[in-house]
Amino acid sequence: MMEAMFIYLATVCVVCAVLTVTLRQPVYNVLSLLTLFFHVAGLYVLLNAEFLAVVQIIVYAGAILVLYLFVLMLLNVRTQSRHLHRQWPFAVLILGAVGAMLVGALHSGVWGSASGESTAAAIHEIGDTQAIGLRLYTDYLLPFEVASLVLLVAMIGAIVLTKKSLIDDHIDQIKE
């Protein structure tokens, strides 16, 4: 049963990823990535990470991709006749190197061994969300606070970049 679910989820993920990269209409790219995110959430459930599965759907599918769709509708981008970058032969070289590195890393098989500090049974006992929260608010408290700062900077940056009058006023001031 688990194997069948995994094969289904993995197949849909790979197909959706290929569609995301190859389709020509930007809206179709975004929608196939949306399908991929839902299936990645399914993979998280298979791996006993229920909290992350829900966060994946709320944040990625609910917030990030809606933002993409919103911007796409706002810009009304026309489809282009040519889709590949003109430097694609050079890109193929780099892709060969990246692919070789990935295959090498998979072949090395140095993956460590189970630490046993939080087994599936232990997580099941206190719940996945509690287990993450305990670790997040004790050992990773400082990174958590830094993450909030990153979000604040991104928020201010997005507002400053998109607010037209701010940039124009600044340019006018420089000209004067």
Binding site: I64, L151, A154, A158
Partner: peptide
């Protein structure tokens, strides 16, 4: 995180999500 039985991996996914959200906001802007 599942196979090495350590919850830290899931905490890191949380941080990746944060960075992804920030990246999308700035990238789309």
């Amino acid at each position: 995180s599942h196979y090495l039985e350590s919850i830290t991996g899931q905490v890191f996914v949380f941080f990746t999500l944060t960075v992804a959200a920030a990246e999308v906001a700035v990238g789309l802007a």
